[in-house]
């Protein structure tokens, strides 16, 4: 029996040497280490052996099993290493073949800009306040210091509705009155984003609907110097730390003093180009100290409170930033445009 075990061991080891692949190896394992292999049969038959024979055969059977298992492991490892080696040597991909396409979602560029603006203002403590688009004449004009027939109303080309006194807001400024009436006499720091409407021909430069972001700060000690500091901080975040700005006197009925903030044309660096109409400056936003009548209409005593407000058209900013030449692309929603963002 011991000779048989030695024979078996030799035969098995010799056969293992010949095993060339995973399949051979698997078959070998079944043949020599499997449940019905000869070794297993011998081990199972131990109890039939005599008391004298049993320990020696058992020990020897165990030795053979361990030896075979060890040899198997070693051979398995070397085979694996060889396979891996071959695969590293021989397999290759054409890395220039296209990758599997993924459906890639994107936020509309108009909303991307809005989000960027929200984030900057949020860090400066300005929260977002939304108000309606179809507005009353009263909120859009009268309460903003533009009574009926006021010449300043000409500054906005208004879409009126067939309902008397109901119009499409021409700016987000009506939200100033809404938020003030809701919050007075608390101090306020909000931005008021949203779609506005102007009665204009749709051209590469002008649209009938556009997003505006208005801002409003009201408190007991808000100054024009604060307005400058705050808007310059915004401009540096939005257009780069190096951007130069200027404030020039302007007119809006709901602010006084009123100003336009220009930034140095980042396309030509102030040298004058088509985009800045050869002035070197880009008009970015209108701003000013909240007019006392507007503060009063919002429920704040203008002798005690002061505030500043500003408003900017955000598609224009997006256009400048990305060199978009036609504002109609925004609401045209051609995927060939949208997929570039």
């Amino acid at each position: 029996m011991l000779e048989r075990l030695t024979e078996l061991e030799d035969k098995a080891l010799a056969e293992l040497e010949q095993a060339a692949g995973q399949a051979d190896l698997k078959a070998w394992k079944v043949k020599y280490l499997g449940r019905s292999a000869e070794l297993a049969t011998i081990t199972a038959g131990l109890r039939d052996l005599s008391k004298e024979e049993r320990p020696a055969v058992g020990r020897r059977a165990n030795e053979v099993k361990n030896a075979l298992e060890k040899a198997y492991e070693a051979h398995f490892e070397s085979l694996r290493a060889e396979t891996l080696d071959r695969s590293l040597r021989e397999e290759r991909l054409d890395v220039t073949l296209p990758g599997r396409s993924v459906s890639h979602g994107r936020v509309h560029p108009a909303n991307q800009t809005l989000r960027q603006i929200y984030a900057i203002w949020a860090e400066m403590g300005f929260q977002i306040y939304l108000s309606r688009e179809v507005e009353s004449d009263e909120y859009n004009f009268t309460l903003l210091n533009m009574p009926e027939y006021h010449p300043a109303r000409d500054m906005w080309d208004t879409f009126h509705t067939t309902e008397p006194g109901v119009l499409l807001r021409t700016h987000t400024s009506p939200g100033q009155i809404h938020v003030m009436r809701e919050r007075a006499p608390e101090p306020i720091r909000v931005i008021l984003p949203g779609m506005c409407y102007r009665y204009e021909q749709i051209t590469a430069r002008s649209e009938i609907q556009f997003n505006q972001v208005e801002g409003l700060a009201v408190g007991r000690h808000i100054t024009f110097a604060d307005l400058k500091g705050t808007l310059n901080a915004f401009a540096r975040r939005m257009f780069g730390q190096e951007v130069r700005t200027r404030f020039r006197a302007a007119h809006f009925p709901f602010t006084e003093p009123s100003a336009e903030m220009d930034i140095e044309c980042f396309i030509c660096g102030g040298e004058g180009c088509q985009v800045c109409k050869r002035t070197g400056w880009l008009e970015i936003l209108g701003c000013g100290m909240v007019h006392p009548i507007v503060l009063h209409n919002g429920g704040y005593d203008p002798q005690v409170f002061s505030g500043f407000a500003f408003g900017m058209g955000t598609e224009r900013i997006t256009m400048l930033k990305y060199g978009i030449e036609d504002i109609r692309y925004f609401w045209g929603n051609d995927l060939r445009f949208l997929e570039q963002f």
């Binding site: 608390e186 110097a225 500091g229 200027r246 006197a249 006084e256 009548i293």
Partner: peptide
């Protein structure tokens, strides 16, 4: 209102560019 009107006149003749930049010192709402 007239007071605000005069402040505007003073500001624009004085020069907006000569007004400093400050950050809001007022209470956070």
């Amino acid at each position: 209102v007239g007071l605000a009107d005069l402040v505007e006149e003073i500001a624009r003749v004085y020069g907006f560019d000569r007004i400093p930049e400050t950050q809001i010192a007022d209470t956070i709402p």
